[in-house]
């Protein structure tokens, strides 16, 4: 190795060093010990004790809260993910109009998303969906017979939807990624289709969607993984209630670990959640062989 090459590789590995340390200390190590903890009884005080699969067995056979929490999470993810994907796709299509000033709307449409899981937003949501709040007022206008008095936050059949609507309201990043994909679809394809007399709707189904399937896949996996870990909205708005209908796994894990100090049990719950996310991600990827179309 020549001297200059040696110097070059010292630079390279030097610049990579922070990441290497980070990868070992903040990724590999936590994942490994987290699995070990999941096989332990690990109380706040006193020594951890190895108990094999006992945590897992208890979760699956005795833990009713886990069951409720699991179903709440699945419901949230399975309704919420398609909702976000569909809404953000439609809005991206609208923002793809060739109009003056459309950039202004792009910025404006992103505003709800910068607020994310902000505490402020949860306050806002609590008020909007209050029995006397604006949402019911709007619904009353359409319901000519009279007032609508849905107690969104406290009614077990509605609470989860307030959280799903909140997530859908914040479609910003997903939408922008769709938008850039839409702008990448070749104009020639549309021109050819227009000559053949295909309607706008037909063009969307036959050209746009097939051409951006890789991005649909990217967005779906991204949203899916995030929704499985939802914490803020449920913690702040519904507090997991009513009747645990919004007690998502991340909340349950938080309570077990940081409220009750059952680090072992919480780690086992975490691993179950990881496996669920992993399995669903794999299903999405596997199925993508059938519907994702790669241009190259």
């Amino acid at each position: 190795m020549s001297n200059s090459k040696k110097i070059k590789s010292i630079w390279i590995y030097g610049m990579l060093a922070p990441w290497v340390i980070g990868f070992v200390v903040f990724k590999v190590y936590p994942i490994v010990v987290s699995f070990i903890y999941s096989l332990m009884e690990y109380p706040i005080l006193g020594d951890p004790e190895f108990i094999g699969l006992k945590n897992y067995i208890e979760i699956f056979t005795k833990d009713d809260t886990f069951k409720a929490s699991f179903f709440a999470t699945m419901k949230y993810v399975l309704i919420g993910t398609p909702a976000v994907i569909i809404v953000s796709f439609i809005v991206a299509a609208i923002l793809n109009f060739k109009l003056k000033g459309v950039n202004f709307f792009r910025t404006m449409y992103y505003i709800p998303s910068i607020l994310g899981g902000n505490v402020t937003v949860s306050i806002l949501w609590t008020m909007l969906f209050d029995v006397n709040g604006p949402v019911n007022t709007v619904l009353s206008i359409f319901n000519f017979g009279g007032g609508v008095n849905i107690n969104w936050i406290k009614d077990p059949s509605f609470a989860i939807f307030t959280l799903i609507i909140l997530k859908t309201w914040q479609f910003g990043s997903t939408m922008l990624i769709f938008l850039s994909a839409l702008q990448g679809v070749s104009k020639l394809l549309y021109e050819a289709a227009a000559i053949d007399g295909a309607s706008k709707f037909r063009q969307t189904i036959s050209i746009t969607i097939p051409m951006i399937t890789p991005v649909i896949l990217f967005n779906t996996v991204n949203v899916l993984v995030k929704e499985f870990q939802e914490f803020n909205s449920a913690y702040l708005i519904t507090k997991g209630g009513p009747n645990n209908t919004t007690y998502f796994l991340n909340l349950y894990i938080y309570d077990q670990a940081f409220q009750n100090g059952n680090y072992g049990y919480a780690s086992a719950l975490t691993w179950i959640l990881l496996l669920i996310i992993g399995v669903l991600t794999i299903i999405v990827f596997k199925s993508s062989n059938r519907w994702v179309f790669y241009n190259d």
Binding site: L16, W19, F23, F26, K27, Y29, P30, I31, V33, S34, Y37, V221, V225, F228, Q229, N250, I253, A257, F258, Y263, A266, S267, T270, L273, L274, I277, T281
Partner: peptide, 24 residues
């Protein structure tokens, strides 16, 4: 390997690291 590791950790839920890092 490095690029692969970045992609895999990209897909990993942050939640996975929370309890061990807290104890650490």
């Amino acid at each position: 390997f490095v690029f692969g590791a970045v992609i895999i950790t990209l897909l990993m839920p942050e939640l996975a690291f929370r309890i061990p890092l807290y104890l650490f």
